[in-house]
Structure formats: C-alpha cells, structure tokens
Design a protein around this nucleic acid. Sequence first.
RNA 1: UGGGGAUUGGUGUAACGGUAGCACGACUGACUCUGACUCAGUUAGUCUAGGUUCAAAUCCUAGAUCCCCAGCCA
Length: 597
Amino acid sequence: MAENPSNPGPTERPLHFIESLIEADNASQRWGLADDSGLPRVHTRFPPEPNGYLHIGHAKSICLNFGLAKKYSGRFNLRFDDTNPAKEEQEYVDSIKRDVKWLGGDFDDGPNAGGVFYASNYFDEMYEFAKELILKGKAYVCELSAEEVGKRRGSPTVPATSPYRDRPIEESMRLFREMKIGRFPNGSKTLRAKIDLASPNFNLRDPVMYRIVHESHHNTGDKWCLYPMYDWAHGLEDSLEGITHSICTLEFENHRPLYDWFMNSINEGRTPDGSGPWGRIVHHSQQIEFAKLQLTYTVLSKRNLLRMVNEKLVRGWDDPRMPTISAIRRRGFTSRAVRAFADEVGCTKTESVIDIGRLENAVRHDLNKHAPRTMSVLRPLKVTIENWPEGKTDELDFVVNPEDPSAGTRKVSFGREIYIEQEDFMETPPKKFFRLAPGQEVRLRWAYFITCTGVEKDAGGNIVAVRATYDPATRGGDAPVGPDGKPTKKVKGTIHWVGAHNAIEAEVRLFDRLFAAEAPGERTGKWEDDLNPNSLEVITAKLDPALASAAPGDTFQFERLGYFCVDPDAAAGKLVFNRTMTLKDAWAKEAGREANG
RNA sequence: UGGGGAUUGGUGUAACGGUAGCACGACUGACUCUGACUCAGUUAGUCUAGGUUCAAAUCCUAGAUCCCCAGCCA
C-alpha cells in the first residue's frame, strides 16, 4: 500500500457533515478520551449481515467508517450482524472478512484495529437486558401470529392493537424464559417493546424484540431458538463495543427514535456509579445516517445480485462484470482506486447517483501510475517487412512505465514478420486517420518507421496481411536528426506491435458494462431487460512474450488498449487475461463522429 | 389523506446572512514515441412563489418534486 512519495496524495477537501459532527464531539469531549492515546475517542464499525457478498456500495461505507477511525486516530470494528440464522452462512463471513481487509479496513491489525465481533456473541447479554425491560414494564410477550399482527397494525391514523399488551410482568417473564428453552414453536410468540401503538412512526408501534426461530446458527449452533431483531440488537452491539458514531444508511432514519428508546429504557433507573437497582449507565452511541452509493448502469442490491448468481446470468459472485468487491478485485481494480473513488464522491444525506465513469476513471488514474506497460495485440494483422532480412531479429529498448522512471527499460524483439492491431490499418483511410494505410508511414513504437507497400486479401476480399518497408535510419523509433539538430521527418501516428516470431497466445476476456441502460429496469420495470448482451467477449490475442511469467493478479497496461490483469483461471501454459478497463480513446470518438456525419 | 428525510451547472460536492467555488464530464487548444497521461482555457447552477434584510443558496411563509416507513429482514 506504499504510495509513491512524489505523489502528494489527495488534495485537501472540505469536511463532510459526519466529519464536522465528529470534530464538534471531539471539541466537547462528548465521548471522553481514549486510554491509550489520550485523544478524543472515535470508534466506528462496519456491521454487515453475512447473507451475501459485499459490493461497491458497501465499499463506500467501509471506507467511510475506517477512514474516520484513521483520520481521528480512533478504532474500527468489523461486526457481523448475525441475528437471523435463516439467511446467514459461514461462506459469507469469510468473503466479507477478505473483502474488508482488501479494501484497507484493518479491523484486526494496525493502529486503528478495533477487532472482529459477532452480534451472536452478545445474545446472553441481550437476553439479560430484555428481562430488565420486562421487569421495568417496557416489554411483554405477545401471542399474536405474524398474520394477526399485520391485520392489527392499523394505519397512519388508526392505532394498532394487541390483547397481550397489559399482561402481568411475571407472566411475560415466565413465558419469555420458556421461549428461550424451546417450549414453543416458531412464530407462536414474540417479545414486544411496549412503546406507542398509535405512533405515526410504525417502528414505535410495539416493535418485536425477539422471535422464535428453531434453526441452527452459523456461530452459535443450536444454543438459541430465540433471536433478537435488528432494532433491539443493534444499539446493544454498539453499546457493548463502545462505538461512538454508529453510521448507517438513510432508510434507518425512521429507526433512530427506536434505537434511542431502547437505550434510554435500559438506562432508565441506572446511575453513573452503579448505585441503585439497575446498575451502571450503559454507553449510548449516536446513530448517524448517510446516503448509500448508487451507480449508473449498475444494480446494487444483495437480493438482485443473488439472483444474477443463482440464475447464472453471470459466472458467479466474482464474475468480473459484477459490482461485488470480489469481482472488481478479480477484474483488476486496485483497492487504492476504490478508496480514492469513495473519497471523491463524498458523503451527504442527498440521494445521488454517481456516474459509473467516475469509478472507471479512478481505476484508470491509479493504474496509469502503477501498471507496467507491454505491447500486445488483441486482433492481430500480420505485417511483413519486405526489406528486413529473413531470420534476423533486433533487440530494442522498451520503457516499462513512462510514469515511473524507476521501472526502467527492457528489451523487445523485432523481426521480419510482426502483428499489429487490425484497427490500426485502413485501406482507404479517412482524413484524420494517422495510422497505417497504403503509402502512409507510421512509427512502430520503440522500433522503426514503416511505410505500407501493399495489401493481401483472401477470395472474399478481406484483408489478411499487409506488406511494408522499414526505414533503417529510424531504429529505436527516433527520426534521424538533420544538420540543424531537428528531426528530418515526422509521423503523426505511433502504433504498437508484437513480433510474430516470439509472440505468445493467451485468452483475453473483454468486459463491458453488465447493463446497457443507465438506470437498469427503468424502461420496463425489470432490470433483466437491460442486460447488455455484449458484456463479455472472449478472444485469443498475441501477447508480448514478457507476459509468459505473469501470475494471477498481476496488472499491466497493454499500450493503447487498456489495463489487463491475469485471471485466477490461468494455469501453467495457459494464460488468461481480464480487461480491467480500456484507455480513453479520442480516436474512437472522432471516428464515431465521422460515421454519424 | 400520517410520519421521517432530501433538493446548488450534465453529474457529484462546497459555501453555515457578505464575490456561488471545486472535482468529474463535455468542448477548445498545447504537449506527446501510448489519439493515453499531463497542462491551459471555455461551458454551465442555487426547485417555485412570496416575504425579512443594505445584503439571502443560507432566515421566514406557502407550495412543488423525489426518497424512506405498516417483515416475527437487516
């Protein structure tokens, strides 16, 4: 993760609203001082439910939460909010840990590590707190079925009802204990908070705190058949971990009154020194909501991503076309680029949709600085240099990364037969086409100037090969210098090439956006209708032989084409590359303009 | 027809009663052995209507539009 020291890093940007809030808290020492650093306490967390793979939207949250801990010398926890055994799996726990770590969220290592936690490890404490609420007359066991509760829910102006609301405390206590030891079937009873059945905020209409689920849990096994609901559990998790700023997305704004009600109810009757019947006051974190990330040309919901995987619309969770963290990692995005992107798009309460181009640019920007270059040809066209001797080769210097002088140079081998890109040749070129054409001279990068002398076609009239002559005075790609010290000739175009005598072949997977519409599903109501049929093209390319030793995950720029990385599918003797991202292409734009008049 | 939020160029995002700024995109141009990168310039905005004020994106009033909420999901 070492940044180039010559890179000044991200420029100063103004504080966003959460940072302002934290700085105000720090100034007033609202959360006290940390024992180790003596600095104002800042403790954040990322609390995923392990029921799916993390995606780029989660990345924004991870970068936000970890970034705040880092910025204010605080701590960052990874916490699995695993309160629903029916949906959660160990596979997801493992993938989430890997993805958070990859993004730089160092939850268990380094100065900001807070640790990894599981809501399910707090079930005993939560159970005790629940009994306290029953004792305080703030919770009761309800025997309405889910269906009946629905019917009795009321409307914005009509209150809800429950016939069990005023049952004696002792009775609720007895039933709650019996719920815990498995005496009742699923759905037969719940523990409900006694708040306000007439509240216009439905979350306060006596919400369920516990439901009975006879199902094995990935962490606690069969110890429990009683599972806490999100609203009840979440504030307690934050409290137990000493979280200062409990950051979540906008849809939880309506839940904040409930979050606070639970904490205030627990603290009712508690004292700072623990005197009195209920003990010491517990920590009450502040919930803060921000707008989650939305992207053009992208579907970002766990439910729909799961469908894409299950219905085999993609090859899996880590199909490089997916917006999951594991997919973009496989595709070759760097976590550095994702972090820069997350920082650039900011953090507000405005629900905005970010142009996917911003993410793509962040990746280009990062890889431009770091990716070694190669010359590789995706769609080969053979060129024979007629005035180059048969069998002779020439070893020429190639600059590994012009953006990074320390990367140095290496050799590339030139010969009588080479491959160039099909689209770098036109028999009848338009005006601003600076590449190879009959009678037209171009530079072969780092090699020689060549002039096209002829075209070979098959019976169908398709171009199958090209003939050319080279200028021996241009070795290395430099035009000869005249007596005045100036180049004697200039060419407008420089194209890449690879020697036919030593090129290696590899599978290359060309990805395009998974969706062809800016807002998938907007047109017909079904995002499936906007799937891009051309989101994957697999070709066999002619590569720079230096790539023969590349290992999975290695990233390169194929000059003039884009960034490519080795896919894990690669095996000994069988290279597979993913196209991470194309380069910007001003010529494509120009050519498109000409085509459209 | 209840409650909770939001609204500034094409897209994001600042400005917290005192010159509407920045980034991305787009468009020009410069540079270039990657039609890349980089650099310079241009473009374009305060949801609407009233009001307060010397002065309003900011304060007040009324309205408009969009998002969230009636899971024993999170």
